[in-house]
């Protein structure tokens, strides 16, 4: 399956993924816009890694780009992760605290 078909199929999938809300043109088009925004901003911001190592950046961007495109639609997954349930919020809060403290503590030593 070529990449174009994959993207095309994923756009079609939006309607199924957005079942909860009423489907309107606006909802689908804004979901597609969100999808494109997230892919492009993540790819552009990963260029920032060039300050650490250029070759590593090239590899990461290629890998990340492939990963993001093959896993479309991302936005429904992201939305599921960011709902209002306390347990999910708490999970990410503790995860961030743990990663932050360990990176700060061990990353520099």
């Amino acid at each position: 399956m070529d990449i174009y078909t994959m993207i095309h199929n994923s756009v079609k999938n939006f309607q199924n993924k957005l079942k909860k809300d009423i489907i309107t043109n606006e909802n689908v088009s804004s979901a597609i816009a969100a999808e494109l925004t997230i892919v492009s901003t993540i790819l552009i911001s990963s260029i920032l890694l060039r300050r650490i190592n250029v070759m590593l950046t090239v590899l990461i961007i290629l890998g990340l780009g492939l990963y993001l495109i093959t896993n479309m639609p991302l936005i429904s997954k992201l939305k599921k992760e960011q709902d209002d349930s306390l347990n999910k919020m708490m999970f990410y809060v503790i995860l961030t605290l743990g990663i932050l403290v360990s990176v700060v503590y061990w990353g520099v030593l």
Partner: peptide, 13 residues
């Protein structure tokens, strides 16, 4: 960056 990207995409949908 995470704040900007995640918030804006959530705002869109």
């Amino acid at each position: 960056l995470c704040g900007m990207i995640l918030s804006i995409t959530m705002a869109l949908i």
